[in-house]
Nucleic acid binder design. Structure first.
Length: 482
RNA sequence: GCGGAAGUAGCUCAUUUGGUAGAGCGGUAGCCUUCCAAGCUUCAGGUGGCCGGUUCGAGCCCGGUCUUCCGCUCCA
């Protein structure tokens, strides 16, 4: 095509206009950083999820899937480290508008004091933080006249606790003991089920457990459309391995996952690895697979070498033994024996992958018609394999028996893939509508169909048309969906 | 969370000092039967984001609030 453009703002509008994504509760002016998937979007999202699920379970002989609940025992999040490290007390300076983590602010100030005063201050701070005494922490800042490094003033807001986990109550009596969290990651559902799956599935290491599902984070700033939402869906797999082999498996999954993204039609030039410099508390290696979004290279999937951190922590907190007996023989001819498996995690953001697919698919095309006038279209070049609607069935006119033939074809195909029937408006207009929602194939039944049982199939991406036998339509579409 | 900007029909936008809110596209129903949106006719969409204030009168002025965008901050 002569002219193609790709614009993020246009994409967002398009997603709404054609039923892909709506803002949550839009009727009530919306809810920040929460979005709903519409009639087209939910199907595309499902198709992406299904593709992932198939490639991670059905096509893998040593990976099985589970579906753990969102609600989990509160101690899970103590064991995982989220209760302690997922919340930060913050304070803002009203003059410079600079925000500080309170502990960092006080520690920085403490560095300027002599040893004795410093240790005393830090100890006081830690005591107050441990007791969640935010008023006391604020007093401590005031008493020490700690100043902002930018504005040099002590004009502070109150200390506020930003816990990234949402909580709610379970049971009929509200109280601290009933507080449960909405999971901030799906991974823990797999770790706490490690023994269940390993034993009932008679799994042998190395093996993996896959899962897709919602997770929730109370992000302070959530932006960039569905890139960072408060409620989002993860597709992740935890791969359990023998200690010492983590480097090898980390490298294996890193390459496998990159290849997988490329299999979805994502160009290699728009994907890259980004190694984490600062590692999370549980990891001994971590990287992101980044995609070049319209707003820059950002994380699409994380690959983490989580060591035995999670299983060990759950063993400690639950006071249960979480180990695996490895019957395979080592170099000395003896079984590897009992150990706590190491874990390689692959975790994709389904919503981010959705955004990736859409930002690649969204295309505005302009060209000159034969008579010299302008023509244009907006087309979603979603890979046929995951497109929400696969085939549009269009009688050229709505009389002369053409709709009857079309409906017969509809009945033949709709059991095998998503079809769309439309008999209104000029054929060109209908093609444009199908372009806009990303339907890869359109079949038009015309008067010639009645004579020789052929139809026109029209391809979305290049608008090419060819004449095929009516009876071959279903087979041809099915072939193109692989 | 802070600062800046914005919010009028599904979309893109008008409404020149405050005086009854319009158009194009899109949608609907029909005509026409045409293989790439373009003809004709019909109809339906807005308490001007929401709440309050000033005023005889507010889409327009003021305050608050919600949402979005940009920058900062944050993102175990």
């Amino acid at each position: 095509m002569a002219n193609e453009t790709n614009n993020f703002q246009e994409l967002i509008s398009h997603c709404k206009e054609y039923g892909y994504i709506f803002q949550s509760s839009e009727l009530y002016d919306g809810l920040a950083a929460v979005y709903d998937y519409g009639q087209m979007g939910s199907q595309l999202k499902k198709n992406i999820r299904d593709y992932w699920w198939k490639s991670m379970t059905q096509l893998q002989e040593n990976i099985v899937g589970i579906d753990a609940a969102i609600f989990m025992h509160p101690t899970v999040w103590k064991a995982s480290g989220h209760v302690d490290s997922f919340s930060d007390p913050m304070i803002d300076n009203k003059d410079s508008n600079k925000r500080y983590r309170v502990d960092h602010l006080i520690e920085e100030y403490a560095e300027t004091l002599d040893t004795q005063a410093r240790d005393s201050l830090i100890a006081t701070m830690e005591k107050l933080l441990a007791a969640d005494d935010m008023v006391g922490v604020k007093q401590l800042i005031d008493e020490n006249k700690i100043k902002c490094s930018v504005s040099k003033t002590s004009n502070w807001t109150e200390v506020r606790q930003f816990n990234l986990m949402f909580d709610t109550q379970i049971g009929s009596i509200a109280g601290e003991s009933d507080k449960i969290y909405l999971r901030p990651e799906t991974a823990q559902g797999i770790f706490v089920n490690f023994l269940n799956v390993q034993k009932t599935g008679r799994m042998k290491i190395p093996f993996g457990i896959a899962q897709t599902g919602k997770a929730f984070r109370n992000e302070i700033v959530a932006r960039q459309f569905i890139f960072r939402m408060r409620e989002f869906e993860q597709m992740e797999m935890q791969f359990f391995i023998r200690p010492g082999t983590q480097k090898q498996w980390y490298d294996y999954w890193k390459e496998e996952r990159l290849k997988w993204h490329e299999s979805l039609g994502i160009p290699a030039s728009k994907l890259r690895f980004h190694d984490h410099v600062k590692l999370a508390h549980y990891a001994d290696a971590a990287l992101d697979i980044e995609f070049e979004f319209p707003f820059g290279f950002k994380e699409l999937e994380g690959i983490h070498s989580r060591t035995d951190y999670d299983l060990t922590r759950h063993a400690t907190f639950s006071k249960k033994k979480i180990q695996y007996f490895d019957n395979e023989l080592n170099e000395e001819g003896k079984p590897f024996g009992n150990y706590t498996p190491y874990v390689i995690e692959t975790s994709v953001g389904l919503d981010r992958l959705f955004l990736t697919i859409m930002s690649l698919a969204y295309t505005e095309e302009k060209w000159l018609k034969e008579d010299g006038s302008d023509d244009s279209r907006v087309v979603l070049k979603i890979p046929a394999m995951i497109a929400p609607t696969k085939l549009a069935i269009l009688p050229l006119v709505k009389k002369d028996g053409l709709p009857e033939i079309a409906k017969e074809l509809m009945n033949e195909c709709k059991g095998s893939f998503m079809c769309f029937y439309e008999e209104k408006d000029a054929i060109g207009k209908r093609y444009r509508r199908m372009d806009a929602i990303g339907t890869p194939f359109c079949v038009t039944i015309d008067h010639q169909t009645k004579e020789d049982n052929t139809v026109t199939i029209r391809y979305r991406d290049d608008m090419r048309q060819e004449r095929i036998l009516l009876k071959d339509v279903k087979k041809l579409v099915l072939e193109k969906l692989i």
